Computed example of a mutant assay.
Amino acid sequence: MSKSFPVLLQPSGMRFDAPAGTSVLLAAQAAGIKLPSSCRNGTCRACMCLMLDGSVVYGIEWPGLSRDEKEDGWILPCVAQPASALEIQVPLAVPLEPAAPAPRPLTGARR
């Protein structure tokens, strides 16, 4: 069974669980939370946010963050995988909008 870690988003207070080996961005989406993102491969920095507590791992050395930024706690949720419980600052996190229902064809006689 895969281990998962709790993630707390600030300042919204939204929470979700992120499975080990899954990016924070994908885990948030699976929990119905939209985080800022664009390229999803660690280069555009649209998702960059500050990790207040916890630790993450990356599969490769991502070019989107400098050594100083990493040391200051900045992470790229699109490619960061949780290695512990996380608290991250994501001011633009919002609940995903529910999908609009598919239009139903009109049936029956019109009056």
Score class of each variant (00 low, 15 high):
residue 61 E to G: 09
residue 66 S to A: 08
residue 66 S to K: 06
residue 11 P to A: 06
residue 44 C to E: 07
residue 44 C to Y: 10
residue 50 L to W: 05
residue 3 K to G: 00
residue 88 I to G: 07
residue 98 P to W: 13
residue 69 E to K: 05
residue 25 L to Q: 05
residue 90 V to H: 03
residue 109 A to H: 10
residue 111 R to Y: 12
residue 2 S to G: 03
residue 47 C to R: 09
residue 42 G to L: 09
residue 26 L to W: 11
residue 100 A to R: 10
residue 18 A to R: 02
residue 26 L to S: 13
residue 109 A to S: 15
residue 80 A to Q: 03
residue 89 Q to M: 12
residue 28 A to R: 02
residue 50 L to N: 07
residue 12 S to I: 09
residue 103 P to S: 15
residue 23 S to E: 02
residue 92 L to M: 10
residue 15 R to M: 14
residue 33 I to W: 00
residue 87 E to G: 14
residue 108 G to I: 13
residue 19 P to K: 05
residue 74 W to Y: 12
residue 92 L to Y: 02
residue 89 Q to A: 13
residue 38 S to L: 15
residue 90 V to E: 02
residue 37 S to T: 15
residue 20 A to E: 04
residue 91 P to A: 06
residue 66 S to T: 10
residue 29 Q to C: 11
residue 73 G to T: 07
residue 11 P to W: 08
residue 56 V to P: 04
residue 5 F to E: 07
residue 24 V to E: 00
residue 79 V to N: 02
residue 59 G to V: 00
residue 87 E to C: 14
residue 16 F to G: 03
residue 76 L to I: 07
residue 39 C to K: 07
residue 44 C to T: 06
residue 92 L to D: 15
residue 29 Q to N: 13
residue 65 L to S: 05
residue 52 L to R: 09
residue 73 G to S: 11
residue 21 G to H: 05
residue 56 V to Y: 01
residue 23 S to N: 03
residue 84 S to I: 00
residue 91 P to R: 03
residue 70 K to P: 03
residue 94 V to R: 04
residue 93 A to G: 09
residue 5 F to H: 11
residue 60 I to G: 12
residue 51 M to A: 07
residue 62 W to I: 10
residue 27 A to F: 00
residue 13 G to E: 08
residue 28 A to H: 01
residue 15 R to H: 09
residue 27 A to K: 00
residue 8 L to E: 05
residue 11 P to N: 01
residue 108 G to H: 11
residue 75 I to Y: 00
residue 56 V to S: 07
residue 3 K to M: 04
residue 11 P to E: 02
residue 94 V to K: 07
residue 91 P to T: 06
residue 26 L to R: 09
residue 107 T to A: 15
residue 24 V to I: 08
residue 70 K to Q: 09
residue 81 Q to R: 03
residue 32 G to D: 13
residue 87 E to T: 15
residue 104 R to S: 14
residue 8 L to K: 06
residue 7 V to F: 01
residue 110 R to T: 15
residue 76 L to A: 04
residue 67 R to K: 13
residue 99 A to D: 10
residue 30 A to P: 00
residue 69 E to S: 06
residue 48 M to G: 12
residue 95 P to A: 10
residue 17 D to T: 07
residue 93 A to N: 02
residue 86 L to R: 01
residue 1 M to D: 07
residue 81 Q to N: 01
residue 27 A to G: 05
residue 38 S to R: 12
residue 72 D to W: 05
residue 101 P to Y: 14
residue 23 S to I: 01
residue 100 A to D: 12
residue 78 C to Q: 02
residue 110 R to G: 09
residue 26 L to C: 07
residue 110 R to D: 14
residue 25 L to H: 03
residue 76 L to H: 02
residue 86 L to A: 04
residue 103 P to E: 11
residue 97 E to Y: 04
residue 90 V to D: 01
